[in-house]
Simulated scan of single mutants.
Amino acid sequence: MESTGVRTERPSDGVLLITLDRPERRNALDGATSRSIAAALDALDADPSLAVGVLTGAGGTFCSGMDLRAFLDGDAPEVPGRGFGGLTQAPPAKPLIAAVEGFALAGGCELVLACDLVVAASDAVFGLPEVGLGLIAGSGGLLRLPHRVPRSVATELTLTGDRFGAADAHRWGLVNRLVDPGTAAAAAVDLATRIARNAPLALAATKRVLAAADLPVAEAWDRQESELAAIKATEDAREGARAFAEKRTPRWSGR
């Protein structure tokens, strides 16, 4: 599928690769591109043959944030109900991996923070510089960064607007895998393929329970128990047990 500013392909079973394709604008997002991302994420969630998404950028840059020229012309990169890039307010139900090359700045960094896992080239650069522009990182950056790096680090980075490198992001825990420049997408697809071998319903339920981890303990536990009861009743749970007993690869049905 190809749409405005976005390419999608299936590089491996169960994996959807979503590529921001505006290299001439360093993959800055306008309204049309944001709507295309939202459509790709909707397709990821709606297709039972897909289990994991990978989000990356063409031309050696992940995303430089909002397309300021489009913004000055009155074109906003937010999708109603979905947020910046059609992602930051309402991430997909299925796992999403950011594959970062080059710059992931401002809204681009907020896209990364909305993903579940991050694979980054060793020379990638991140940052939330909005305070230097008289703005705030209002597409989830201020809410998510303190949960992905130490709070004191998040406070310094958001108050100074300083950029930070992939090595520091990996050391702080934001980046899961640090790879050679030019290989982030391939490494992210490899990771996605490993994840996609697992039961799709269990993957989505696991993501929901992880999201509840910051709730009060009793509420989080109730959420976990509800998800567990639902998963135990699925055909995939029975198939997993049968496959283990028969020493074979499970054949997931998504039911």
Rank of each mutant, 00 (worst) to 15 (best):
A114T: 11
E227H: 13
G85Y: 05
E225L: 15
V217Y: 14
G31C: 10
A229W: 00
D42H: 12
E225I: 10
G65W: 05
L16Y: 09
G182D: 07
D214K: 03
T33I: 00
D123R: 10
G5V: 00
F103K: 14
A28G: 15
T8F: 06
R251G: 13
R10F: 09
A243Q: 03
A76D: 14
A106Y: 11
F244Q: 10
D13N: 06
D214P: 00
R255L: 11
P181K: 01
A169K: 01
G31N: 11
R255Y: 02
D75E: 14
D222M: 06
C115M: 05
R194G: 14
G138L: 10
A76G: 01
F84W: 05
T56M: 01
G240R: 03
A245I: 05
E227L: 14
V100K: 09
A188K: 01
L113E: 10
G107E: 04
P23S: 08
H147I: 00
R177A: 12
G134R: 04
A38S: 14
R223V: 13
V149M: 00
G59D: 09
T4W: 03
A39T: 02
A38H: 12
A245V: 04
P80D: 07
G182K: 02
R177V: 11
E24H: 13
G108A: 03
A90R: 15
A169T: 01
A32Q: 13
A58Y: 03
R144D: 10
P146G: 02
A211K: 02
G86S: 03
D45G: 12
R194W: 05
A243M: 04
A98W: 09
G65R: 03
L105C: 07
L20M: 14
D168S: 15
L135K: 11
L178W: 06
N198Q: 12
L228D: 12
L203N: 10
L17Y: 05
D222Q: 15
A204G: 01
R251E: 15
G60A: 04
W221H: 14
A99L: 07
R26K: 12
L228F: 12
R151W: 07
D116Y: 05
E101H: 08
E239F: 05
L111C: 08
E235S: 13
C109H: 15
G165Q: 06
L178I: 05
D123S: 14
F103W: 12
G182E: 11
T19W: 00
V189Q: 04
G138I: 06
A76V: 13
T155A: 13
C109A: 15
D47P: 04
L29W: 09
V112R: 02
P216Y: 09
A218F: 07
R251D: 13
H170I: 01
E24G: 12
V149L: 01
